[in-house]
């Protein structure tokens, strides 16, 4: 009496909190759905009615122009109404908790909350307190699932696969939610992940997550299919244990010379915004190996897919 597997919807989640929660199939389903939405951007009228009459609120408790714009545009292309709530943790100054703020907003009739928050775990916390969908747009140093999904999408698009690829993530891994989400997503799709940086920025504990940890950037270059260069936070440099920008560039910056020691078809990624001349030399950032702008474009399709799938799951509509 068991129903055929094919009848079970792959996606039943109304929240997207972290890639650690998702199965390989769920991740691939988001990527496939995004593939379908990719086409919308090429139309003269760049809109589909999938979320017509729905309300998406962007709740940003931390500055992020790009991610906020990407989510806003994604929601608009799905025909949702979008409102913006971007106080910088100031609600707490008034004594209001995140949960109180969210319940007040939800009371206005909101379907999806997109949350960016400086505290790790904030998205999970919020999802347990509200009835609407919650999409994590970055919580502290914990997770940034849509960034990881767009990275996976871009790798698959350029490489045709993710299984078996050697992927290096370089930089301030310890403080990076992007790195944590990328690691989870890449591993679930079968890539071998190497984390590169000085031990002051890359905690050894990442080995417990099944990654290789090294500070020998030169040594790993020839074996990599994909190299993701994280943004260095200059203001965080001394606190996080790095002597100087000058030294960082010499030891861990991607430049033309190092690119020459990579595989000819290596893919160079960056979550943006780029510090030109620091983690990435300008000619490499703008060169044929770079996928930086493509990542931004793909981010839109991926976020459309996430908003769509979560809303569908919440509404109880069978998905595909």
């Amino acid at each position: 009496m068991t129903a055929p597997v094919t009848d079970t919807p792959v996606w039943t989640r109304k929240h997207l909190l972290a890639l650690a929660d998702l199965s390989r199939e769920e991740i691939l389903h988001v990527l496939d759905t995004a593939q379908g939405f990719q086409e919308v951007s090429t139309r003269s009228v760049k809109k589909v009615p999938a979320l017509r009459g729905r309300v998406v609120v962007n709740m940003f408790f931390e500055d992020s122009t790009r991610t906020r714009m990407s989510f806003e545009l994604a929601a608009q292309r799905l025909s949702a109404d979008v409102i913006d709530f971007s106080e910088r943790v100031s609600s707490t100054k008034k004594g209001e908790t995140l949960i109180d703020t969210a319940r007040n907003i939800e009371a206005m009739g909101v379907d999806i909350m997109v949350l960016r928050h400086p505290a790790a775990g904030a998205a999970l916390h919020l999802s347990q307190a509200v009835d609407c969908c919650v999409v994590n747009a970055g919580d502290g140093q914990h997770a940034h699932p849509t960034q990881a999904l767009l990275d996976l999408f871009t790798i698959r698009e350029r490489k045709g696969r993710i299984d078996g690829l050697n992927v290096a993530i370089v930089g301030d891994i310890g403080h990076s939610r992007v790195a944590r989400s990328d690691v989870r997503g890449l591993q679930k799709l079968g890539a071998n992940v190497t984390l590169v940086g000085p031990p002051t920025l890359v905690p050894k504990a990442f080995e417990q997550m099944g990654t290789r940890v090294t500070s020998d950037f030169e040594g790993v270059l020839p074996e990599m299919d994909v190299i993701n260069m994280l943004r260095i936070q200059k203001e965080r440099m001394s606190a996080s244990g790095f002597p100087s920008v000058r030294e960082y560039v010499r030891l861990f910056g991607m430049n033309h010379e190092r690119l020459g020691r990579c595989k000819p078809d290596v893919l160079i990624m960056h979550p943006g915004p780029v510090n030109r001349g620091i983690e990435l030399a300008a000619d490499v950032a703008d060169g044929p190996h770079s996928s930086i702008l493509r990542q931004v474009t793909n981010g839109l399709a991926v976020r459309m897919a996430v908003l769509f799938l979560c809303q569908q799951a919440a509404a109880g509509t069978p998905v595909m």
Partner: peptide, 17 residues
């Protein structure tokens, strides 16, 4: 540390080179 002040790391990697 820079200036031997015990606060910020000196350019250890470049000094090694």
């Amino acid at each position: 540390t820079k200036g031997r002040e015990g606060k910020e790391l000196a350019e250890i990697g470049l000094m090694v080179r």
